[in-house]
């Protein structure tokens, strides 16, 4: 059984999610890891190091949905599995690829039970579907947050692919969130802030605590809609799915759409002035009170205890 896995990358770097998808997919068969991107050589070199990768395929092109699909459709003929992470690129391409191949995809896989048995969440994670896929080929997206990373001790060969298709789409602008905070989907610690922060300026309190802990920053939809945080920090049913060892939720009620994104968190800390907030009810350690008093004190106490990463 052979696997075609599409790598995720950003700014010329392989995304940390890919190592996790490689680890998950390695149990399905030898992996050909496809890197699609202009100037993808460095990404391909990083990809070649991942344990479980049989070979790296490099397509040097601007990645667009339609051109990627044309490439994937051709390559798919040779594989039993086509897989990508359930990030925004995989979500965009994989269902379209499946439809072109007249196959039903299985997406957001969080557990692989066998060669064609998978578990995926539905209803914002409030129910889990166990699925058998009897089709000849399996088209999957996998959630990086649900799997550990593959080791980087491999030296797989890199093969460059020939001509690729042009796209009808044109990129006009990118609006990136500047900063060097860790990747949310794979971070070990995440500090999240809600609408209670009250302004973009106050949201820096969340950022300050995150910086101290070397944590990624998350936000609720309410905080993003209000303009306190950029959209790519949103955690939940419509945002990113996280599974850190520690999630610190500040002024977040714990609506079910937010909880959908944090079910994989090992430990949850909540700071909230409402003892009845759903997130307080399931936190491993909740402190009831005003976040504007608590968070600055907490940063001081962590300083005193010499905690910093």
């Amino acid at each position: 059984m052979s696997v075609l896995l599409v790598a995720d990358h950003d700014l010329g770097q392989l995304s940390p999610a890919t190592a996790r998808i490689v680890h998950a997919a390695a149990q399905l068969g030898p992996i050909d890891l496809l890197v699609i991107g202009e100037n993808g050589d460095k990404i391909a070199e990083q990809a070649a190091k991942l344990a479980g990768v049989h070979k790296v395929l490099l397509a040097q092109e601007l990645s667009f949905t339609d051109s990627d699909l044309a490439l994937l459709e051709t390559l798919a003929q040779r594989y039993q599995y086509v897989i990508q992470s359930a990030g925004s690129v995989g979500r965009d391409r994989i269902p379209a690829l499946a439809a072109r191949l007249d196959l039903m995809p299985v997406t957001d896989v969080i557990e692989i039970l066998g060669p064609n048995r998978f578990v995926r969440p539905i209803y914002a994670g409030n129910a889990l579907q166990t699925i058998t896929d009897p089709q000849a080929k399996h088209i999957l997206t996998i959630r990086a947050s649900a799997f550990p990373a593959a080791k980087s001790d491999n030296t797989a060969p890199i093969e460059t692919l020939g001509d690729t298709t042009a796209s009808v789409a044109r990129l006009i602008a990118t609006h990136r969130t500047e900063g060097d905070t860790p990747d949310l989907a794979t971070a070990q610690i995440v500090v999240g802030g809600g609408i209670a922060l009250g302004s973009a300026e106050n949201f820096q309190l969340v950022e300050k605590l995150a910086k101290k802990l070397g944590a990624a920053i998350g936000a609720t939809r309410a905080a993003v809609d209000a303009g306190y945080a950029p959209n790519d920090w949103q955690v939940g049913q419509t945002g990113k799915i996280i599974a850190p060892d520690l999630y610190i939720a500040i002024g977040i009620s714990g609506a079910l759409q937010h909880l959908a994104g944090i079910q994989g968190a090992k430990r949850i800390v909540a700071i909230n002035n409402d003892p009845e907030a759903p997130l307080v009810k399931l936190a491993d350690a909740a402190l009831i009170g005003d976040l504007f008093e608590i968070v600055p004190q907490l940063i001081d106490e962590l300083d005193k205890a010499g905690v910093s990463r």
């Binding site: 299985v106 889990l128 896929d133 307080v280 350690a285 402190l287």
Partner: peptide
């Protein structure tokens, strides 16, 4: 349908919250 849904199950329960 192409896929067979074997079962639908509830997610693992989290233990009830504790306050400090």
């Amino acid at each position: 349908p192409r896929l067979q849904v074997e079962k639908i199950s509830p997610p693992a329960e989290r233990v009830a919250g504790k306050t400090v």
